[in-house]
């Protein structure tokens, strides 16, 4: 059975950019700031491409929700090996309040529309660090989920997922269709090669609106204020473990 995979690729502020809070504290500065694909989404795409290379997946659809510029993120996914892209156009106020809940509704609707049997996502995005979209998507679809995957294997109608959990690894077996979210060690994403970047230009990329998918974007979340993290205070150096223990006792930590 060849699977069809839907892979979410989020456009986030590049990992190397120093994040600055807007003066009015409504969010962070994004204008003129370099963006790239969320690293965990890259891992998800890579996994899909590897499954395709093993002929387990027949088609990979990369999807990104957000403004026009998300198409660049999708092109990167296409250059890595996705077959076609869907850009779900969300901009302005809707984009500002776009969170895991709305995105999971979009992904669930697309999963049904495109008749896929595997939704592959990053375990979280490095901008809001929510770690919710995969779980919510599974709930919306009422599909099993394998989150924080560090190994994925298709075994007949089932999926063996090795999960990174507190204290070690957990191996689960879930029925397809399913939602899987990628952890750090799942794979090492490939470099998009120049020939593939050029080929990606010719791949199909369609744009849809959330309303086309019957999804409303009403948000349950209100942002009151965005603050810089507190400045880290300088530490103290101690000579021996005894000193360390004494110090920790002194400040009441042990």
């Amino acid at each position: 059975m060849a699977l069809r995979a839907l892979v979410g690729v989020k456009r986030v502020i590049d990992y190397a950019v120093k994040i600055r809070v807007k003066p009015d504290k409504t969010g962070v500065v994004t204008d003129g700031v370099k963006h790239s694909m969320n690293p965990f989404c890259e891992i998800a795409i890579e996994e899909a491409v590897r499954l395709k290379e093993k002929k387990i997946v027949s088609e990979i659809i990369a999807v990104s929700c957000g403004p026009q510029q998300c198409q660049e993120t999708i092109r990167t996914a296409l250059a890595m090996g996705a077959d076609r892209g869907i850009h779900v156009d969300v901009s302005g106020k809707d984009y500002e309040s776009l969170g895991p809940f709305q995105v999971s509704k979009i992904l669930a609707a697309l999963a049904k529309k495109e008749n896929v049997n595997l939704v592959l996502l990053g375990k979280q995005a490095i901008d809001d660090d929510c770690n919710q979209t995969g779980q919510m998507t599974a709930a919306q679809l009422d599909w099993p989920q394998g989150t924080f995957a560090s190994e994925v294997k298709v075994e007949g109608e089932k999926l063996k997922v090795v999960r990174e959990i507190d204290g070690g690894l957990e191996t689960i077996s879930i029925k397809l269709p399913a939602v899987v979210t990628a952890d750090l060690r799942l794979n090492e994403p490939r470099y998009a090669t120049l020939p593939n970047i050029m080929k990606a230009k010719k791949k199909k990329l369609e744009t849809v609106k959330p309303s086309d998918l019957g999804v409303t974007l009403a948000s349950q979340v209100q942002i009151l204020s965005v603050e810089e993290p507190p400045q880290r205070q300088a530490g103290v150096k101690v000579q021996t473990t005894e000193d360390l223990v004494a110090k920790l006792k002194e400040v009441g930590r042990i």
Binding site: T76, A192, L194, I197
Partner: peptide, 8 residues
């Protein structure tokens, strides 16, 4: 395309 190439 130039940008994509640079990113890679």
């Amino acid at each position: 395309e130039h940008n994509a190439l640079q990113e890679s």
